[in-house]
């Protein structure tokens, strides 16, 4: 059986890596030879990434049970969901963990900053005095509703029912800032799940396994459509999301959360003071 091979393409200052469902855009800045070497390390790390990860998929699609995993990305995924008291599988951390893993491979002398963007889930490393500006969209209005400046290594991830992976909630988008992209990915998934109106007839849901037989969510109902909601319902759903977000912020897992639903937006945590 011949699978497609991983692809690497240079694009000006960036490097694009893709294989199967993974699409990464990498950007390193610093001394020219250091950037070049970082890209070479990224390509080497990426080469076997997916093939190693798929071996662990059967374990990763279930909540943590102690069964061993061996691929480096799988280990990061499991670490990211450890100690979470609600239903979650390591798959909630897959995109962020891939980004973190490639970022870790790229880091080295002579670099000022490294950004790994995995379809919107971003792992970031910044040297002394470096800043990275991020635009925040509410997915309704054009452009950005605000900008934040990041100044330390961190991860940013976004989740919502419109995204490629399924959501149990109705948030248009929940963006989380955390220490790593894997952690941000898990928390964005869980907080987006909690922005919800249980049993509302205005939300259309289907069993995850009917949409995608491999889904880690099994027969759980995932959101496939949300009708226009009365303002009061939007507020109620966001309230429950904010409460969930504040819990994770109090535990020190997230430093900032931005939530949006049908044009209403909320912020939790200090880090997300919008400019």
């Amino acid at each position: 059986m011949t699978y497609e091979r991983p692809q690497a393409n240079r694009s000006g200052r960036r490097l694009h890596l893709s294989h199967g469902p993974i699409n990464l855009i990498l950007e390193a800045a610093g001394e020219a030879h250091a950037v070049e070497a970082a890209y070479q390390r990224a390509i080497a790390a990426f080469d076997e990434l997916l093939e190693a990860l798929v071996v662990d998929l059967p374990v990763l699609r279930k909540p943590l049970c102690g069964a061993p995993v061996s691929s480096p990305v799988a280990l990061r995924m499991c670490a990211a969901v450890r100690g979470i008291p609600v239903f979650v599988t390591p798959m909630a951390a897959v995109a962020g963990s891939v980004a973190d893993y490639v970022l870790a491979a790229m880091r080295g002398e002579g670099l000022r900053r490294v950004v790994v963007n995995n379809g919107g889930d971003i792992a970031l490393w910044l040297g002394e005095g470096e800043g990275y500006r991020l635009g925040i969209s509410d997915h309704v209005r054009p452009g950005f509703v605000g900008m934040i400046t990041l100044d330390a290594a961190c991860g940013v991830a976004t989740s919502g029912w419109r995204g490629r992976s399924y959501s149990l909630g109705i948030a248009d988008a929940v963006t989380v800032l955390a220490r790593s992209a894997a952690e941000a990915d898990v928390l964005a998934t869980l907080i987006a799940n909690s922005v919800d109106l249980p049993d509302s007839p205005l939300v259309q849901r289907e069993a995850a396994c009917a949409l995608s037989p491999d889904s880690d969510l099994g027969a759980r109902l995932v959101t496939v459509g949300v009708s226009a909601l009365p303002d009061a319902n939007v507020t109620k759903a966001l309230d429950s999301g904010v409460a969930c977000a504040q819990g994770y912020i109090a535990q020190g897992r997230a430093s900032g959360v931005f939530l949006c639903l049908q044009g209403q937006t909320r912020v939790a945590g200090e880090a997300f003071a919008l400019e």
């Binding site: 699978y3 469902p21 949409l211 037989p213 491999d214």
Partner: peptide, 17 residues
């Protein structure tokens, strides 16, 4: 079987990519 993920795909749906 186009990539190692080997998605099972339900009728009318697309795979992970």
């Amino acid at each position: 079987d186009a990539c190692p993920v080997l998605c099972y795909i339900a009728e009318g749906r697309s795979g992970a990519c």
